[in-house]
Structure formats: C-alpha cells, structure tokens
C-alpha cells in the first residue's frame, strides 16, 4: 500500500533559556496505509515532537513531510486544522476529554464541527460508542467513567470522522494491565479495518501488537525492525 506518512530529513529545534535544543535531527520515516507502527524511545528522544509534527500540531524547521502523497511541510494554521479535523485522529495518554461534556457530546464534537446534521450525528455516535464498547455510557460524564472507558471514549472521538491515520501518544500510560490489553485489542481491531496507526510508547511489551517498530534516540532514528 502507498505511504500515508513520509518524512524526509525532518528537523525541529526549540530555543530555551539554556540554549537551543535539537529535538529532531533529520528524521526519514514512513507509515504505509493500514500499517501499525510503534515509536519507541526514552523520555526526551523526540517521539512526541515527531508525533506533533505528523499530527499537524507543530511545524518542522526543515525537511519535508508528505501526507497521503501531498507535501504538507508548510501548511497554514487553518490548513493544519483542516487536516486534523478530517484526515487524522488523536489519542492521548491523559484522554483529553472535555469534562463538562458527556461521552456522547465528546464523540459528537468533530461531527458537529464538520457540519453533519444532528439526526445523522446521533446515529453515527451511538454506533461508534457501541463499537468501542461503551454504548451504555453515552450520557455519562468522564468523571463517571473508569480510565479504560474514558480512553475508549477518546478512541471513539478519534475514529468518528473515519480518518486514514490514528496517532496515539502513550494511550495506555494511565491504565492498568487489564485495561491496557483491552485498549490494545481495540486498536488492533481498528487497524485490521484499514486505519493506519502510529503509536508512541515506552512499554516494549506492547510491540507484539505492531507491524513495525521504530526506535528513536537523541532526535534520530536508531533502529527499525519488523
């Protein structure tokens, strides 16, 4: 399958009061359509920076970034927002749900923003919540759900626009072993449906779920295994 994500010589540095920090030093990597790729590395190696650039939350200082064959290295802020809204789904370690909204309302957000009619939204959201296993939690606030259920809600929100790529930044970091396994099974099912997944993790035990592993060290790719 063709590449969903391809980067060539991606660089990114930050100015701090201690001097310049080179977070990325020339990253060449790719994620093929339908592939499950894990990004491993120690804290501070640049995994999250790379994920933020791929997820259009940040812009690279140098290099090229191609998304689904299009050069998106220097998109405007609105252009990046549109890609995030329509082509990507994000899953975070801290779930990042809006705590004053129910599970239904959280999952409904991207659809509402896309201009989908209320009746069509209701049907899609209910179907998605059932798919991720929290159909009976639709009217519950995040504070009324367990960590695993909140993460499922976040996954439902990430999937609702049927993106080609899901970016997951340590999605199991705040979960117990049992919940971790259930979330990974869910992600594997999603991947089997054709959605590419790029996941950042510290946990080497989770690599069994992936098709390919990319290891990072000090802002560069140190190893790649399948």
């Amino acid at each position: 399958m063709s590449d969903i994500v391809r980067t060539e010589g991606l660089t990114k540095s930050f100015k701090t009061k201690y001097g310049r920090v080179d977070a990325l030093r020339g990253i060449d990597m790719n994620v093929a359509g339908g592939e499950f790729v894990m990004l491993l590395g120690k804290s501070g190696c640049g995994k999250s920076t790379l994920l933020n650039i791929i997820g259009f939350m940040d812009s690279p200082d140098g290099g090229k970034y191609y998304f689904d064959g299009e050069d998106v290295s220097s998109l405007s802020n609105d252009g990046k927002a549109d890609y995030r809204a329509k082509r990507l789904g994000f899953i975070f370690q801290q779930f990042n749900l809006i705590y004053t909204m129910t599970a239904f309302e959280n999952v409904e957000l991207p659809l509402g923003y896309a201009g989908v009619e209320k009746s069509a939204r209701r049907e899609k959201v209910e179907r998605m919540l059932k798919k991720v296993g929290i159909g009976d939690r639709a009217d519950h606030l995040p504070s009324e759900m367990s960590g695993g259920e909140q993460q499922r809600c976040a996954i439902a929100r990430a999937l609702i626009m049927e993106p080609k790529l899901i970016l997951a930044d340590e999605p199991t970091g705040n979960l117990d072993e049992d919940s971790t396994e259930k979330i990974m099974q869910l992600l594997k099912e999603i991947n089997a449906g054709g959605t590419a997944i790029l996941m950042v993790t510290h946990d080497t035990d989770l690599t069994v779920y992936s098709d390919r592993i990319i290891k990072m060290k000090a802002g560069m790719i140190s190893d790649e295994t399948e």
């Binding site: 609105d78 927002a81 809204a85 923003y113």
Partner: peptide, 15 residues
C-alpha cells in the same frame, strides 16, 4: 485545557 482539546480535534483558531 478545553481550547487545547478543540485545537487537537481540528477546530480552526478563529472558530
């Protein structure tokens, strides 16, 4: 925090 979530979902800054 809420603004950050909207941003990550893809809401434009102006919106």
């Amino acid at each position: 925090y809420e603004v950050g979530v909207y941003y990550s979902i893809g809401f434009r800054r102006n919106f």
